[in-house]
Amino acid sequence: MRKLKQALCILMACTMLSSCATLFGGKVTEYQKTRPAAGEPQRELRIGAFIADLLIFWPSLAVDFATGAIYKPKAAASK
Protein backbone atom coordinates (compact mmCIF):
# COMPACT_ATOMS: atom_id res chain seq x y z
CA MET A 1 0.00 0.00 0.00
CA ARG A 2 2.84 2.37 0.81
CA LYS A 3 4.46 1.80 -2.59
CA LEU A 4 1.17 2.58 -4.29
CA LYS A 5 0.94 5.91 -2.46
CA GLN A 6 4.52 6.74 -3.42
CA ALA A 7 3.85 5.86 -7.04
CA LEU A 8 0.73 8.05 -7.10
CA CYS A 9 2.64 10.97 -5.57
CA ILE A 10 5.39 10.62 -8.17
CA LEU A 11 2.84 10.41 -10.99
CA MET A 12 1.06 13.54 -9.74
CA ALA A 13 4.35 15.42 -9.43
CA CYS A 14 5.34 14.42 -12.97
CA THR A 15 1.99 15.56 -14.29
CA MET A 16 2.16 18.91 -12.53
CA LEU A 17 5.80 19.61 -13.35
CA SER A 18 5.87 18.54 -16.97
CA SER A 19 3.47 21.11 -18.41
CA CYS A 20 5.64 23.09 -20.78
CA ALA A 21 3.40 26.14 -21.14
CA THR A 22 2.75 26.34 -17.40
CA LEU A 23 6.45 26.14 -16.56
CA PHE A 24 7.99 28.18 -19.37
CA GLY A 25 5.13 30.34 -20.64
CA GLY A 26 5.45 33.16 -18.14
CA LYS A 27 2.68 34.78 -16.14
CA VAL A 28 -0.83 33.71 -17.14
CA THR A 29 -2.95 36.77 -17.95
CA GLU A 30 -6.65 37.25 -17.34
CA TYR A 31 -7.16 37.06 -21.12
CA GLN A 32 -5.71 33.54 -21.13
CA LYS A 33 -7.88 32.42 -18.20
CA THR A 34 -11.20 33.75 -19.52
CA ARG A 35 -13.20 31.84 -22.13
CA PRO A 36 -14.32 33.90 -25.11
CA ALA A 37 -18.01 34.73 -25.20
CA ALA A 38 -20.25 33.71 -28.08
CA GLY A 39 -19.28 35.61 -31.21
CA GLU A 40 -15.78 36.52 -29.97
CA PRO A 41 -12.72 35.11 -31.74
CA GLN A 42 -11.15 31.99 -30.25
CA ARG A 43 -7.87 32.21 -28.38
CA GLU A 44 -4.74 31.05 -30.22
CA LEU A 45 -2.69 28.11 -28.93
CA ARG A 46 1.02 28.17 -28.25
CA ILE A 47 1.92 25.56 -30.85
CA GLY A 48 5.43 24.92 -29.49
CA ALA A 49 4.17 24.18 -25.99
CA PHE A 50 1.35 22.04 -27.39
CA ILE A 51 3.74 19.87 -29.40
CA ALA A 52 6.21 19.63 -26.50
CA ASP A 53 3.41 18.47 -24.19
CA LEU A 54 2.36 15.85 -26.72
CA LEU A 55 5.89 14.52 -27.16
CA ILE A 56 7.12 14.64 -23.55
CA PHE A 57 4.08 13.72 -21.45
CA TRP A 58 0.67 14.09 -23.12
CA PRO A 59 -1.44 14.15 -19.88
CA SER A 60 0.23 17.47 -19.05
CA LEU A 61 -1.96 19.05 -21.73
CA ALA A 62 -4.81 18.92 -19.21
CA VAL A 63 -2.79 21.07 -16.79
CA ASP A 64 -1.92 23.61 -19.47
CA PHE A 65 -5.52 23.87 -20.67
CA ALA A 66 -6.85 24.08 -17.10
CA THR A 67 -4.50 26.95 -16.21
CA GLY A 68 -4.95 28.68 -19.58
CA ALA A 69 -1.18 28.77 -20.09
CA ILE A 70 -1.46 26.92 -23.41
CA TYR A 71 -3.09 30.00 -24.98
CA LYS A 72 -1.09 32.92 -26.35
CA PRO A 73 -1.39 36.13 -24.34
CA LYS A 74 -3.34 38.95 -25.94
CA ALA A 75 -1.22 41.04 -28.26
CA ALA A 76 -0.75 44.66 -27.25
CA ALA A 77 -2.92 47.05 -29.22
CA SER A 78 -0.84 48.67 -31.94
CA LYS A 79 -1.25 52.36 -32.69
Rank of each mutant, 00 (worst) to 15 (best):
G39W: 09
A52M: 13
G26M: 03
A69I: 01
E40L: 10
K74Y: 02
I56Y: 15
K72V: 08
G39A: 12
K27E: 08
R43I: 03
G25L: 03
L23K: 12
L55C: 13
A13H: 03
T34F: 01
K27G: 02
A13F: 11
E40A: 15
G68E: 01
V63C: 03
A66W: 13
S60R: 06
T67M: 09
D64K: 02
K74R: 09
L17Q: 07
K74G: 00
R46I: 11
A49K: 02
E40K: 14
P73L: 00
L23M: 15
T34P: 00
A52T: 09
L11T: 11
A62S: 05
L54F: 15
C14Q: 08
M12F: 14
W58Y: 11
L61F: 09
T29L: 02
I51K: 13
R46M: 11
V28D: 01
L23N: 14
Y71G: 01
P59R: 13
I47K: 15
D53P: 04
G48Y: 12
E44V: 11
M12Y: 10
A69D: 02
P59Y: 13
W58A: 09
S60Q: 10
F57S: 05
C14P: 05
A13N: 04
A69R: 01
F65G: 01
E44I: 05
K27I: 06
L54N: 13
K27H: 06
E44D: 14
